[in-house]
């Protein structure tokens, strides 16, 4: 089942999930952060980050521990709002609108900008109910059949359907680590996000489960804008189109992944990707 060069699935292959806008690759910026500063209390954690994340591309955020890459990721769906003392300056524009503007509905924003966490965090419910959770709280389904169809489509999109279709109503906690993480991806896809944020989604997984997640990311990028934080340089090189290198709360360099990994412009970037520190 291991594929390395996966043809991009045509939208028709995945039925009832609506397809992100453009049929032809649309490389316009989906999210743009400009002059972003982030504070935990008095401490500035991110400094003047300006970065574009484009549609149908995977943007990888790399850098040593504590460099602010996860914090940056969490500013993109305002997940930091729930941390006391967190404060943002600058702007993050999603589809032409600043997500930090006063009129923005955070709940709707988080539905549009899905997130997958470092450690899989299924709810202690059945597999079906995990995927249905977001559909239910957002009241996105009209009927039981509709709900079941969307759950199936989401599980298929996350390449998990065949493994769990016979035990949808058993506990999600009985799945393996890799399956749980794909379940969390399915759960995120179910609410039809436009952007998918992934915070080291494979760091707790073994190599085979990691490979499956990476294949999945590759398949999903035709439909979503994906931003992934990773500690693993090879992973960034394998899955991403664009790489952004963070260091001590600053964005040191960003560019096409092929360029960053072969001919970085900054000495610091080169030192990091060649393993001289971090």
């Amino acid at each position: 089942m291991l594929q390395t060069a996966v043809p991009l699935p045509s939208p028709a292959a995945v039925p009832s999930l609506p397809v992100a806008p453009a049929p032809a690759p649309d490389t316009a910026a989906k999210i743009t952060a400009s002059g972003l500063d982030f504070y935990y209390g008095p401490r500035r954690v991110l400094e003047q980050i300006t970065l574009q994340m484009r549609r149908n591309e995977v943007t990888a955020l790399i850098g040593p521990s504590g460099c602010g890459k996860s914090t940056f990721l969490r500013t993109l769906n305002r997940m930091n709002d729930i941390v006391p003392g967190a404060r943002v300056e600058g702007s993050v524009v999603l589809d032409g609108r600043d997500i930090y503007a006063a009129a923005v509905d955070v709940v709707d924003l988080r539905r549009r900008v899905g997130m997958v966490f470092q450690k899989s965090n299924p709810f202690p419910k059945s597999i079906f109910d995990n995927v249905a959770y977001g559909l239910r709280i957002n009241r996105m389904t009209r009927s039981r059949e509709d709900l079941e169809g969307r759950v199936e489509a989401s599980l298929r999109s996350a390449a998990l359907w065949d493994e769990v279709k016979d035990r949808l109503h058993t506990s999600a906690l009985a799945l393996s680590g890799g399956q749980q993480q794909r379940l969390c991806i399915a759960r995120a896809l179910a609410v039809e996000p436009e952007v998918l944020l992934m915070d080291e989604p494979a760091s707790a997984l073994d190599p085979i489960a990691t490979q499956r997640i990476e294949e999945l990311i590759y398949q999903l990028k035709s439909r979503y804008t994906i931003v992934i934080v990773t500690h693993n340089m090879q992973q960034a090189a394998r899955v991403s189109d664009v790489t952004a290198f963070f260091w001590l709360g600053r964005l040191v360099e960003t560019g096409l992944t092929t360029k960053i990994f072969t001919a970085p412009a900054q000495k610091l970037t080169e030192d990091y990707i060649t393993g001289r520190f971090g």
């Binding site: 997940m79 709940v107 450690k119 965090n121 709810f123 609410v191």
Partner: peptide, 26 residues
């Protein structure tokens, strides 16, 4: 209750009430 449970709910578009309900359920 792990923070990841609440964040998981928030990330799916949960309101504060719904996220708390997820934590209580856990």
């Amino acid at each position: 209750v792990p923070a990841a449970q609440r964040e998981g709910a928030y990330a799916l578009g949960a309101t504060r009430f719904e996220a708390i309900r997820a934590a209580v359920y856990f």
